[in-house]
Design a protein around this nucleic acid. Structure first.
Lengths: 346, 346
DNA sequence: CTGAAAGCGCTAACAA
DNA sequence: TTGTTAGCGCTTTCAG
């Protein structure tokens, strides 16, 4: 037998009909099977090394056993742990992941989603959402349920799973206030991402009583962070602390500080967001908000599985925010004035 | 029409037989079609928003349009760019990627491969191979062609795509020799990976005339690198330079140096391999061998596509090694003695 | 060049 | 409990 065995081969070997064999091998199917028959079929299957053809099964059951995972850029260190959490959780549920990388391009996002839908994905995990993404909004109708990860579309009504950014940013802000900082800058990311909006809003709330100035970087990349940080450092009373929208922007701040001959944290404190790998080994080690990356992936997969099972909108909350944690490192310290005062020089 | 349109709907609308419609929409199929008919069918399809059901098509054609990508740990910064290269190249060829993460567990590798084969993958990209992997060796029979990436199984006869590690390591070795180092340590990774063997062999060749001592880390992780580096630093005439099997091990060396109160590169030079993100911002910035990650992914996908098309062993070379590049940074410098001599203190 | 019919491998409904 | 039949949507012979 060169070709791989089919259910008919199994049935023949067990002396039953294919339908019976099918039911025997899949206890979830309706119709109970005599224990003896079931055993016979199962051993026959084992002996033949039978594995059901997922294609044929899908065609019949209309379930592909596949979900699509759309990511903006796998190269962004935040994503792999999330994808891994998604993938492991779904895999454990017998579901495989088609991964598509859009390189942060909305056009490619649209293509990817279309292609994934054409391939009959039973669900979608979307990590690419820009706040205005028409592609994502079109998914709200829930035919294949979709879950948003990390990046939200506020009014699309899709479930959203992420870290509790507001909480993390708030902790960072209080940390800076507690250190004595009053002139503070926030280096926000691009406004088309929900993360930017959420974090920025939290910052503005936390620093309502302080002297806060906000700049926006064009992207969440180091170079754009450096550009924006230059302006911030040039502003009239120079801020004593810069809170960055993410770690990459914080790295841009590091560069701008170096250019300006300023020291961190002596002259300016810096904090980031995400706790990317190796930021604990920078000079100075970066204070940042750690987000539970793997857990976000796991939670997103769970929410998706729920929706896939509970056909429809599911009962869960729209947003699932997992706890973040402020990690204190060497890039934040008391402002110079305060430090001087403490030393009795004020 | 609630359900999604089928080829029969298209055919009906165009007033032709489904078979004809199928041929009209897929010019690659045998049987030429009158231009007028083809146009009619195509517009009908467009109007209905028809997309062929990949499941049904697969069942008929025995081609799934999917390949499996098996990775040891997406969280390892070396992998995402490779996966991305694979994914983009295959996607451009109309092929989607099922990604499976094995968490470096051979048992999970076996399960993943089995599951991917059961799902009728047309090809496999394997980045998990340990040198003795029975799972990988069993793939040599080529029914769904497989390509090994980064980690080879020397005698399995499977195509292998990676960076030219030997060349890179050789460059690093010559760099150290040129700086004046003669007592050198190599911190190798676990011996069950081909990368370890390849790199180590190249080091031994390059330092044939020098005083080389080799230690092996249990894994390619920071902690194990630190352990092994401790021994190295305690050895009788302390090495003036440590070449590490990868950047993580190099970070372990950094930690061991810090513990021992030694400075880098003043007391000991350190070099790594892979040029992971952010190692250029460590203190000191790490000299390392950069590998063309994305290109490796692209090349692997190309090789796989070749094999998938050219049914069988394909004519290409078994190994494709892409050029690596030594990146000089602050972690390597002349040995203390040489430096002293240069300062006229010797 | 197009129509007809069969069938990929499986499972769902219905009969027995 | 098991057999029977039909059909998922598509492509591919084989006729015409």
């Amino acid at each position: 037998m060169a070709r791989r065995p089919t259910i008919r081969d199994v049935a023949a070997r067990a002396g039953v009909h294919p339908g019976t064999a099918s039911r025997a091998l899949n206890p979830a199917l309706p119709g109970r099977i005599a224990a003896a028959t079931a055993l016979r079929v199962r051993t026959a299957a084992e002996e033949l090394g039978y594995t059901p053809d997922p294609t044929a099964r899908s065609l019949r059951t209309r379930r592909s056993g596949v979900v699509g995972v759309v990511v903006p850029d796998l190269t962004n260190p935040v994503l792999p742990p999330i994808v891994r959490g998604v993938e492991e959780t779904l895999w454990a549920a017998g579901i495989a992941c088609l991964v598509a990388d859009t390189d942060n391009d909305p056009a490619r996002e649209a293509v990817a989603v279309r292609e994934l839908l054409a391939r009959r994905c039973e669900g979608l995990v979307i990590a690419t959402a820009t706040r205005a993404s028409a592609t994502v909004r079109a998914l709200a109708g829930a035919d294949p349920p979709a879950v948003l990860v990390t990046r939200d579309v506020e009014d699309a009504g899709l479930p959203f799973v992420a870290g509790d950014d507001a909480g993390g940013v708030e902790a960072a802000a209080h940390h800076l206030l507690h250190l004595g900082h009053r002139r503070i800058a926030y280096l926000a990311g691009p406004p088309d991402l929900s993360t930017t909006v959420t974090r920025r809003a939290a910052v503005e709330r936390a620093f309502a009583d302080a002297d806060l100035v906000v700049a926006s970087a064009r992207t969440y990349g180091i170079a754009d962070g450096r550009e924006a940080a230059r302006d911030l450092l040039a502003s009239a009373p120079r801020p004593t602390a810069i809170l960055a929208g993410n770690d990459m922007l914080a790295l841009g701040v590091y560069e701008a500080l170096a250019e300006a001959g300023l020291r961190c944290p002596a002259d300016v404190s810096v904090a980031g967001h995400n706790d990317m790998p190796l930021v604990d080994r920078l000079d100075p080690p970066l204070t940042t908000v750690a987000i539970p990356r793997a857990e976000i992936g796991v939670a997103a997969a769970r929410v998706l599985l729920d929706r896939m099972a509970g056909g429809g909108d599911g009962g869960g909350p729209r947003r699932t925010l997992l706890p973040t944690r402020l990690v204190l490192r060497g890039s934040t310290g008391p402002p110079q004035a305060a430090a001087s005062r403490a030393r009795g020089l004020g």
